[in-house]
């Protein structure tokens, strides 16, 4: 029971790190980027290649995944995404699905379609007993790392000058622009960091869920659930939404494997109908 809860929390934290970039960019630019999972996949595969082909340590793989995905995100944002902010939502959806298809095929071409896993460093393997429950060390590692990241993000958003500018831009981009805030620059930076976080999440998830080329499509729906339940105006909303989803998903797969996916989709639709602005947002704009 406690094991499931713990696994669920670890999974939820992971989902949060994966999805937070999407939440912020969606709130900031009202841009629907379904290709967010592709950045996560890039980070995950980079780690796999580094470890399995070149024998580089897992601990180097994590920051490398962050940097790689962030650069990838920044480059694509400046060259491709920037043309789409003024286009319709349909165009954005199609464009990002096109990117997902390309990413899937490219990974398939270079890495093969089969699932890839890594061998975790010995320090992260094994299980420990905690309050009578057996818990994987890697789960604890994930929770601690993601927890630190969350606290860091919250700090940046709440306490720094950049954070307040970002919040202003999310609240009302036009007014923020009028006050002399360079929204375009903030957005580019946020996009890069968000992609980087996704890459880091992808790298982390190679230890929990294996990587294969269908990753972006498979997890797209999870990201969308996090956003729809958590809303896009805060980061605490998506955080709790991710935890809920993680626990619900792990518990569902454990207790009722036949209807697990069913329950999650139903909850998403129900939330969307009852509170289209998200479960954790205070007021609708």
């Amino acid at each position: 029971m406690l094991t499931i809860l713990f696994d669920g929390v670890a999974y939820g934290m992971l989902l949060f790190v994966l999805a937070i970039g999407l939440c912020v960019t969606l709130g900031l630019m009202n841009f629907i980027n379904l290709a967010h999972g592709a950045f996560a996949m890039a980070g995950g595969y980079l780690t796999i290649v580094m470890m399995n082909r070149y024998g580089i340590s897992f601990y180097w793989g994590l920051p490398a995944a962050f940097v790689f995905s962030a650069i990838l995100g920044a480059v694509l944002e400046r060259t491709l995404y920037v043309h789409l902010y003024t286009k319709s939502h349909l165009d954005q959806v199609l464009f990002s699905i096109g990117l997902v298809f390309m990413a899937t095929a490219v990974v398939d071409y270079f890495m093969g379609a089969n699932q890839q896993t890594i061998n975790l460093p010995p320090a992260l393997e094994g299980r420990v007993n905690f309050l009578g429950a057996s818990i994987g060390v890697y789960r604890i590692f994930t929770i601690v790392l993601c927890g630190l990241l969350t606290i860091g993000l919250q700090f940046v958003l709440a306490k720094t000058r950049f954070g307040s500018r970002l919040r202003a831009a999310v609240d009302d981009g036009r007014v923020a622009r009028g006050m002399g805030i360079d929204v375009t620059k903030i957005f580019a930076l946020t996009f890069a960091v968000g992609s980087g976080l996704a890459g880091l999440g992808g790298a982390l998830s190679t230890g929990i869920i294996s990587m294969d080329p269908t990753f972006p499509l498979k997890y797209m729906i999870y990201f969308l659930i996090v956003i729809s339940v958590g809303g896009t105006t805060t980061i605490t909303g998506p955080f709790f939404a991710s935890l809920l989803l993680g626990v619900a998903d792990v518990a569902g797969k454990y207790y009722a494997p036949a209807v697990g996916g069913f329950i999650i989709y139903t909850i998403m639709v129900a939330v969307l109908i009852l509170r289209p602005q998200g479960l954790f947002t205070k007021a609708s704009r």
Partner: peptide, 17 residues
Amino acid sequence: LQYWQFWLGLVLVLLVL
């Protein structure tokens, strides 16, 4: 055989742009 998805994606991206 299996990489036609790539070209589909490319066509889509170019189409939108």
